[in-house]
């Protein structure tokens, strides 16, 4: 696939699907539009909730796309975000928090990411195994730090809640996707990641510092994990050692749905964004639709979530494989 052009078509399809999905669920959840004012108000709060809720996923989808492009993967993101959160949660919730917990959280995120990168780059262990290992390892550290407690110092940190509301996350996401995205898209750095994923040996022969780039990508994920931890803890206001289990799967499903090939060498950030939104709308919609559905169906509609998620992933992979074969023929 020619990565400059081909995925565009796919992104339009994703966008169309997303709109269709929103329309369906709006109808199913029984929203009534008696006036234009109600309508706008409804959508403002709906979209606002949707975005703030999916912020951690959106942040890591950015990094996951890049790492998948290099033919790598990071399964440890859920544990990583949880560990950063747990470490920050062990500080008392006062103004000091900004100067102690937050920098330490940043350092933790970077370190965890760097560690993943170092293992992948230097030990030459397949990324899926390396990060499966660190996923379990980091989770174990969460329990060591937190025990069985659930801590919530974040509520009392002055100004912290801003990170979890719409205006806060939109700054974070805007910087990442609207400024960082286009920059990365045209960068030489991304070009090198693409070549690494397309043909690792050829990348080495082309003078690309493959190990250094690998380290950078995984460390970037660590940084994004730190941001995700901020927004997660600010919105949920508490965290425990078991938080965010299965988060990595959600991120990967979204990114793959967005057209990034797991085999490497192809993918788009816009697709990843749309993929996350598609899933978020689905989850939110199923929750809303249960009010309507439970009266007609013998089970709760929201219980269908995993079935839809699994089916979406399979369809996503299938479609991108077809597109890939087309472009080769």
């Amino acid at each position: 696939m020619n990565w400059h052009e081909a995925p565009d078509m796919r992104n339009w399809i994703l966008l169309l699907l997303l709109l269709l999905e929103i329309a369906t669920f709006t109808f199913l959840s029984g929203v009534r539009f008696d006036s234009a004012g109600d309508f706008t108000a409804y959508f403002q709060s709906y979209l606002g909730d949707l975005i703030t809720q999916s912020t951690p996923t959106l942040l890591l989808a950015f990094g996951m796309t890049l790492v998948l492009i290099t033919a790598g993967i990071d399964l440890s993101v859920g544990s990583m975000v949880a560990l950063v959160g747990c470490i920050m949660a062990s500080f008392p919730g006062n103004t000091e928090f900004w100067w102690t917990a937050v920098p330490l959280g940043l350092l933790t995120g970077l370190t965890l990411g760097f560690l993943n990168g170092a293992l992948v780059a230097w030990l030459d262990v397949p990324p899926i195994i390396t990060t499966l290992g660190t996923m379990i390892f980091y989770r174990g550290l969460c329990f060591v730090v937190m025990g069985d407690l659930e801590k919530a110092p974040f509520i009392t940190v002055p100004g912290y809640e801003w990170l979890g509301i719409f205006s806060g996350v939109i700054v974070m996401l805007g910087l990442l996707y609207l400024i960082g995205g286009p920059y990365v898209y045209h960068s030489r750095w991304l070009r090198e990641l693409f070549m690494m994923g397309g043909n690792r040996i050829a990348a080495r022969y082309a003078g690309i510092p493959v190990q250094r780039r690998t380290l950078q990508v995984y460390t970037l994920i660590g940084f994004l994990g730190f941001l995700a931890a901020l927004s997660f803890t600010a919105r949920n206001s508490s965290i425990s050692a078991g938080s965010l289990q299965g988060f990595e799967l959600q991120v990967i499903v979204a990114v793959v749905l967005g057209g990034t090939r797991v085999q490497g060498g192809s993918g788009t950030l816009l697709g990843a964004f749309l993929g996350v939104m598609l899933i978020a709308v689905l989850e939110e919609g199923l929750r809303g639709a249960s009010i309507w559905g439970d009266t007609y169906l013998p089970f709760e509609i929201s219980h269908l979530e995993y079935i839809f998620l699994g089916a979406l992933l399979l369809i996503g992979v299938w479609v991108s494989n077809i597109a890939h074969q087309r472009s080769r023929a």
């Binding site: 990565w3 400059h4 920059y183 045209h186 030489r188 090198e192 070549m195 043909n199």
Partner: peptide, 29 residues
Amino acid sequence: RQGLVMDHSVRDAISIGISDRLTRWGIIP
């Protein structure tokens, strides 16, 4: 095996060799 990525473009294949000279502020114009 050692030279090219078969499904990437001719443009990518050539410019990777001179990308350090093309790049301004990290970006390939």
